[in-house]
């Protein structure tokens, strides 16, 4: 059967293109079920952190700064934090939790004995990481609305954007999990990638205040594009080049998801 032999060759190729299938939702649901049990401490984290940021930095610093980017500083900050929180939430989940399930807990080994495959597991994980970003986004939006910094119902549009931001940062986190020999490894990624983005991508001050050369580089980073979407949506300003930003976030998601699938196939199916 030449057909079968060909199919076999394709089946073992770790580079084969992942298919998106329903099985991913089973993995997503598994994580939702675990989360339900820990819902109180999770919500505390989701609401507590942004409240502290917005109250402390927003009102404290805001008192001296007044306006930034033609909006009250607290609005500027809230609309940036909603993007950066989506980033950190998805990154944490995509590294520490995914690695825990893959290596010490051997959950993926158990799942791979069923009809599901690596691409299904990772698609489910990706969606779950983004779902956690969405929870954090909802919390920040609520806190921001209560503090009166949100301008109108159009701000709800930020939620699907937050989901996309979650996907966009979960995917590289999965790649880190795929190549990680242990938990300590993730420190590099946080110190070298996540924290610098947090500082330079326009969360706390406009990117336009940076030197030109740095700006060029910063415009390649996904968080810059994330903030460029969340800020106008929350503050009620007009979106600039929304398609470009959506495309960048989607591009990062797709490329890193694919890389994670290839790497984890090589790691687990050997």
């Amino acid at each position: 059967m030449p057909g079968a032999a060909q199919a076999a060759a394709i089946n073992w190729n770790p580079w084969r293109v992942p298919r998106l299938r329903r099985g991913a939702f089973a993995v997503w649901r598994r994580n939702v079920l675990v989360w339900r049990r820990l819902v109180i401490p999770s919500l505390l984290l989701n609401f507590g952190e942004p409240t502290l940021y917005l109250l402390g930095l927003g009102f404290g610093l805001g008192h001296f700064i007044g306006e930034m980017g033609s909006m009250p500083y607290i609005t500027f900050l809230a609309s940036g934090i909603i993007a950066s929180s989506a980033m950190t939430t998805a990154s944490f989940e995509g590294m520490y939790s995914v690695y825990t399930r893959m290596v010490p807990q051997k959950t993926y080994e158990a799942i791979l004995a069923t009809p599901l495959e690596v691409e299904d597991i990772l698609a489910g994980e990706l969606l779950w990481c983004a779902t956690k970003s969405l929870f954090s986004g909802c919390a920040i939006l609520t806190v921001a609305a209560l503090l009166g910094v949100v301008h109108g119902w159009q701000a709800l549009l930020v939620l699907p954007v937050v989901l996309l931001i979650g996907l966009c940062f979960a995917a590289p986190a999965l790649v880190m999990s795929a190549i990680s020999p242990g938990y300590e490894f993730f420190n590099y990624y946080f110190v070298l990638v996540i924290t610098p983005m947090f500082i330079v991508c326009g969360v706390f001050y406009p990117v336009s205040t940076l030197p030109y050369l740095v700006q060029d580089f910063v415009h390649l980073l996904p968080l810059t594009h994330a903030v460029a979407l969340t800020r106008p949506i929350i503050s009620g300003q007009e979106l600039q080049q929304p398609l470009l930003h959506l495309l960048v976030l989607t591009g990062y998601t797709g490329a890193f998801y694919y890389a994670a699938v290839v790497l984890i196939r090589k790691r687990l199916i050997n």
Binding site: M1, A4, A5, A7, A8, N11, A113, P115, L116, E117
Partner: peptide, 15 residues
């Protein structure tokens, strides 16, 4: 053949 039908085969196996 296992290689070409792994997922289908695993559906019918307990491990």
């Amino acid at each position: 053949p296992v290689a070409a039908h792994a997922a289908q085969i695993r559906r019918r196996i307990g491990v």
